[in-house]
């Protein structure tokens, strides 16, 4: 369990950010479920709950999700249920339980770049950007590839481009972390494939996406080729939930299922 020496509830993002960078151990508090697992001694905890960062809204062709929005809000949002055939509600709905999802937050989950994240994998196949208080707005992919750095994630933007998307995950127990997850989307013939929980963080399978986008016909064979390509261009590792070899094999299966599901829509 972490200890908090002090706690602030800033009313502007600037105050929050100043507080964050003023000491090394100062830390932003999201839903705290993950922080709680560690035994970090935090000098000042920065509570974002007074900054009105809990929203899901549509604006200027983007869906915006505030950092303090909970997974349960994502799961039950009618806007998100209707967008991208509900990939985001679906991605988070498997995680632990309702009362858990009423706690954990979108900002923390994206900012932390967890390898196992179901949300990040799903967001990756949408046209997603993040807004960081200091570093500003950038694509999710760019953010994921940046080295970790202190900042505050304020919101996530998703271009509302009518993509059709699907997310897949393989779990042993239904309430466990995924052994592997994958997401696939398609808009105007452009396909995007991402695989996460490898167990490293989610990554786009660019070559496979390209292969699929370029394919003249989509049949079992071309789909399988693309899925295979994805499992070959990405790297996989071993941890307690699965070996690299198994993950690689499963990557092909989940991607294939994702493509098929998108095509069926």
């Amino acid at each position: 369990m972490f200890t908090l020496v002090d706690l602030v509830q800033p009313e502007t993002l600037e105050d929050a950010y100043q507080s964050l960078i003023s000491k090394r151990s100062n830390t932003v508090l999201g839903g705290c479920a993950f922080l709680k697992l560690g035994s970090k001694r935090i000098m000042t905890g920065i509570d974002l709950s007074k900054l009105n960062l809990n929203y899901i809204r549509e604006q200027h062709g983007f869906i915006e999700i505030g950092a303090m929005t909970t997974f349960r809000d994502v799961e039950t949002s009618s806007l998100l249920k209707e967008s991208f055939n509900g990939i985001l509600p679906q991605a988070v709905s498997q995680i632990i339980g309702v009362q858990f999802r009423n706690v954990v937050t979108v900002g923390a989950s994206v900012f932390s770049k967890y390898g196992f994240s179901d949300l990040i994998t799903a967001l990756l196949v949408l046209d997603t950007e993040v807004e960081l208080y200091h570093d500003g707005r950038m694509s999710l992919q760019e953010f994921l590839n940046q080295p970790p750095k202190k900042d505050i994630l304020t919101k996530v933007f998703i271009k509302n481009d009518q993509r059709i998307a699907s997310c897949q995950s393989l779990r042993n127990s239904a309430s466990d972390f995924p052994i592997l997850n994958a997401a696939v989307s398609q808009a105007d013939g452009r396909w995007t494939i991402a695989v996460g929980a490898r167990p490293l963080k989610a990554e786009l399978a660019l070559q496979a996406s390209e292969l699929l986008s370029q394919a003249n016909v989509l049949n079992d064979e071309t789909i399988e080729d693309a899925a295979k390509a994805a499992s070959e261009e990405l790297t996989f590792g071993t941890n307690v939930r699965g070996s690299a070899e198994y993950r690689q094999a499963m990557s092909k299966v989940l991607v294939q299922r994702g493509i098929t599901e998108v095509l069926a829509c």
Binding site: L7, C32, A33, D47, S49, R72, V98, Q99, F100, V103
Partner: peptide, 13 residues
Amino acid sequence: GKPTLSCSVLSIR
């Protein structure tokens, strides 16, 4: 009114 894990919410919140 929302079911929530009381073990995971800071009292201050």
